[in-house]
Design a binder for these strands. Sequence first.
DNA 1: CGCTTTCGTGACAACTTCGTGACAATGACT
DNA 2: AGTCATTGTCACGAAGTTGTCACGAAAGCG
Lengths: 229, 229
Amino acid sequence: MSAPRLLLVEDDPALAELLEFRFSAEGYAVTATPDGDEALLLAVEESPDLVVLDWMIEGTSGIEVCRRLRREKATAHVPIVMLTARGAEDDKIRGLDTGADDYVTKPFSPRELIARVNAIMRRIRPALAGETLSVGDLSLDATAHKVTRKGQVVALGPTEFRLLKFFMEHPGRVFSRGQLLDAVWGTDSDIELRTVDVHIRRLRKGIELAGSADPVRTVRSAGYALEAV
Amino acid sequence: MSAPRLLLVEDDPALAELLEFRFSAEGYAVTATPDGDEALLLAVEESPDLVVLDWMIEGTSGIEVCRRLRREKATAHVPIVMLTARGAEDDKIRGLDTGADDYVTKPFSPRELIARVNAIMRRIRPALAGETLSVGDLSLDATAHKVTRKGQVVALGPTEFRLLKFFMEHPGRVFSRGQLLDAVWGTDSDIELRTVDVHIRRLRKGIELAGSADPVRTVRSAGYALEAV
DNA sequence: CGCTTTCGTGACAACTTCGTGACAATGACT
DNA sequence: AGTCATTGTCACGAAGTTGTCACGAAAGCG
């Protein structure tokens, strides 16, 4: 599964940047624009999985963007989360049936918005549920116990899953076989160091993909690492 | 290892001291100030990796500090964790709106705050735990076990890696073959002195780069040194 | 300049470390 | 009981690394 695409339409530069950063960290591929007209173009070109739309924006107003998105066949069913100002117009806006899937009233916490977006994404694309680690073209959903590489779902054994998860929690860092045993098998396991090699091999075999390089790096006489970025 | 730097802005002396102690124990290099204006100066001077900011502080208010940090180019992307009073929902939310990355409501447990800070640190700087040595156009990441010269990744054998690391920990200093044997091979190694020459050669070959001078200096009848700067 | 000392270099055999296929033991599930 | 996936170990060969040596070049020195 490829990273879920998100179109962010917000004209406050500070807020836009913050949200773009947070959503990127959350594993979304974010496209941002402050302009309503440009948003309509981008919505068609990039076919995002979800649109976060500020009510007050330059160019075409947020609510108009919302209507037009619904009218266009290509974007008619994109989930839309509206950012609305708190105040007198609140009820009026809510009353208008523009087709938004959710509203978040300003001021809001990024965390709250992310939670709502994640909730919608889970509904649309169930595999996105829960906490998602993401390193390079790998992504791992801890709660759903699923791993994907470049969008392709990947089958791993329980041990390989834990091993990959540990690596993804510390991308780029080299771990000795002993450290991996402690972290993945448990501190009081009495297991041969070389056993790690075998599971590394099984992990590699599991996530191998034609045309893509092996992200697991072996560092001779030191251990293994998951290639960051 | 370059410890992650943390700027603590808190005007309650007891709480400040407690947090400073706990964060130090957690491995952070903590700079603390009770004053908002001073915090802005320190943020530029020390370029901390993260700022913990109390909402209610002397001098410039917490939220104003937050805004100004974002406005300054040097500090625009520093993660900020706000400490807010319970029930001050508006403050909390406005804090996030101005660019804080997370908030913790008082009263909180130090453990909770530390957990949040650690979480953000992991997200922002995954390789933070990794010390990266840097001498001239060489840089060495010990935890990732990677060496680069002018950005180019360089492949070294284990011994060459340790040798270079030792040199980079003492740039410019001349070491005799005996000293190098003790430092890189271990005190109780029974190895020919001339073997060092061979590994110096292998190191040179490994990091050689067209157009760049050899940073390894031979000091006749004394030993070797890594050219500083 | 000749002599001595010190260093750079290529070669190489001994040694480590790693990848891989196979296999038996285990436990879950039918 | 039987099937199946998973797991830990091992043995073997491939690949990389290491310490040593021999020889020649370079540097100091009277």
